[in-house]
Design a protein around this nucleic acid. Structure first.
Lengths: 371, 371
DNA sequence: ATTGCCGTAGCAAGCGCTTTCTATTGGGTA
DNA sequence: TACCCAATAGAAAGCGCTTGCTACGGCAAT
């Protein structure tokens, strides 16, 4: 029923070995023979059997890209860039580089992350790219570390994109990390420079590297401005009992969603009606924050400044245009793709930090003098 | 070096066949034996060799999801839903249903679409889900039809999600089509009801089913209101020579991007400074349209109403909140996922049309009486 | 002429798993 | 006690491809 290598070989009057070599192009085959084989392939409409090929060759052309949320452009942009870099060379015809770049959506679930890794391991994937922040749970880190080590061991290239290096495994995988801390710090410094002193912060989910780093940058900026909280211990998010809330009460955690931004901002405004700026964990959250601010009858940026992070495409379209921190997502994804292909040499030490650039736009302005 | 089935068998003191059966769970194995095998698997940290397994069983657990633009939430939402439905059952442990749902980004390129299909065919994918509109080029349609027929023939389940059925192949694949025409029509009717008579339309790229259907809905509504263009032939987008532009000059095509929306709207405003509403091909385009309208010093909706399509999450956050047409992307994606898994029975005739609901919000209002 | 090598093509041995068919039990039943 | 069937385990034949090694011409060097 289905056409096999042997069928092609028969039609081209050569041995299966020769057909295989023509198809893989890594062994000298006389031009005339090659022609004959290629014609037979076309005539018979032959399609290579991937599993058989992978089994015999002990490698596959699968490259997995893991993302936390496929509906979020933050990941989509990186994944798309990587995929372009990997499956891209249209011109080459059926040349060698044909790889199947696929993206797997973990939904932020550590179990699914591990599951996908196992599935990719099963397929003997050529490479795996992990994008976005990582969970900081020790158990999960350990599991990931051993799993990735095993993958690397089996010859799968491992690349981290927008994720800090895993301690200890620096040698076996390349890591492209965003300077979330620096970006966060510069963003808050910008607000400080404008004159803001009471700044609310809508943080991302707990135990995520991205969340922590951005928040640390924010706090570092405050600290440097002498606004640091003396009792900087874990501000346990207990509602303020009124009065002057400390810095730790100006931070609220929640998922990276618009809704979270909305609700957290409402909460922040309740705790500190006199705050003049809200910094959000990312642009999506910032959109929610904007909505909340408006729903309270406040204007942006006259009454309250709002800032985001990532500079996703829609951020410039918000009204007012969102002040945010630009992350070169496309470039990072493309580079990760090349690293996965082995087309680009890894950064020294296997680790590169990608800088985050402040984009000051219309959603931030000096606070009103009166208040 | 790597652990194989045989190693596990040896350790568990059973035959390889038994180990295979334990792992696949489709053949009676005594509880005690199963225990022993499972322990051995754990002890040795065994990972099934996917290619070998697929080769022997002549099937694989790969499910491909093709999208036009992975950075666009329109696709991300559907893909995420499908993937959840397919790889989702966390609770079950290592039960049978473990499938590897992967999304492939075609970037809207027909060649890449075909390439991915071939790659998936190579892997003997269990199912393929095609999302979003299709290209209407006859050559490509033919190529796709035969390719998909071949896939279906080889046992791969084919599901179309948000894409109209391919003529002729109704029997071999299920199709979940959005009612783009109806949605487009209702949207324009809404504008008409508000009193608008001069409505600009920023259409998507030419030769795409989605583009055409939405535009047809729009034109049908106009027609029904007696505003149809007598010379309804292909309005060749030539700049208006001034005076009263016909209906066909109020339509501009462009990609599904914010930028396209911005530029097309500027162009429309140039052609017809007196238009009172702009309908965009989708929400992203609508955002660009909003920006253009504002940059012209016009207010939304007081001076110009703007409407989108899809009701992506950010649409409600635009200011003013965008009037649009809601497509149940998540539900459709989930259903496609189930169809791909064989968990859900296909709709009668293999084709289901999913209705699109008008979401009237703040970006549309009656036109100003004076103008 | 003989030797040797280069350029090609074929042989055949797997790669690690699934699955059909067969063998071996241990009851239940006549 | 003899017989048969259900339940369970094993033997072995591939699945379709890759690749190390061998075979075979011809051509240059000896």
């Amino acid at each position: 029923m289905t056409v096999t290598l042997a069928d092609v070989a028969a039609r081209a009057r050569v041995s299966p070995a020769t057909v295989s070599r023509v198809l893989n192009g890594n062994y000298p085959v006389a031009a005339a023979t090659r022609e004959r084989v290629l014609r037979a392939v076309d005539d018979l409409d032959y399609v290579l059997n991937g599993p058989a090929s992978s089994l015999a060759a002990a490698t596959s052309d699968l490259v997995g890209i893991l993302v936390n949320d496929i509906a979020d452009p933050f990941f989509g942009i990186m994944a798309g860039a990587a995929q372009t870099e990997i499956g891209g060379q249209e011109g080459t015809g059926r040349a060698g580089g044909e790889k199947l770049a696929v993206v797997c959506n973990t939904g932020g679930s550590p179990e699914r992350e591990l599951t996908y890794l196992t599935l990719l391991q099963r397929q003997r994937a050529a490479a795996v790219i992990l994008t976005g922040g990582a969970l900081e749970d020790p158990g999960h880190i350990a599991a990931m570390t051993t799993k990735l080590a095993k993958l690397a061991d089996a010859g799968t290239r491992v690349v981290l994109c927008g994720r800090p290096p895993l301690p200890g495994s620096d040698a076996i995988m390349a890591s492209l990390a965003f300077d979330n801390r620096g970006g966060g710090r510069r963003l808050t410094e910008h607000l400080l420079t404008l004159g803001h002193r009471k700044i609310g912060y809508v943080a991302g989910p707990l135990e995520r590297t991205t969340t922590r780093h951005r928040l640390e940058g924010h706090l570092a900026a405050l600290e440097a401005a002498g606004l640091g909280d003396p009792a900087s211990g874990k501000g346990r998010d207990k509602g303020s009992g009124g009065g002057r809330p400390g810095q730790e009460e100006l931070v609220v955690h929640g998922p990276y969603s618009r809704r979270s931004g909305y609700e957290a901002t409402l909460e922040l405004l309740r705790r500190a009606p006199d705050l003049t700026a809200v910094v959000a964990a990312n642009d999506t959250v910032a959109l929610g924050a904007c909505a909340a601010v408006r729903d309270q009858g406040l204007r942006i940026p006259e009454d309250v400044s709002v800032a985001g992070f990532d500079d996703l495409p829609f951020s410039v379209d918000a009204t007012p245009a969102l002040t945010t921190v630009r992350l070169p997502l496309y470039e990072a994804g493309a580079r990760a793709g090349r690293l996965a292909m082995g087309t680009e040499t890894p950064p020294p030490g296997g680790i590169a930090t990608i800088t985050a650039e402040l984009m000051a736009r219309a959603s931030t302005a000096p606070p009103r003098p009166t208040r």
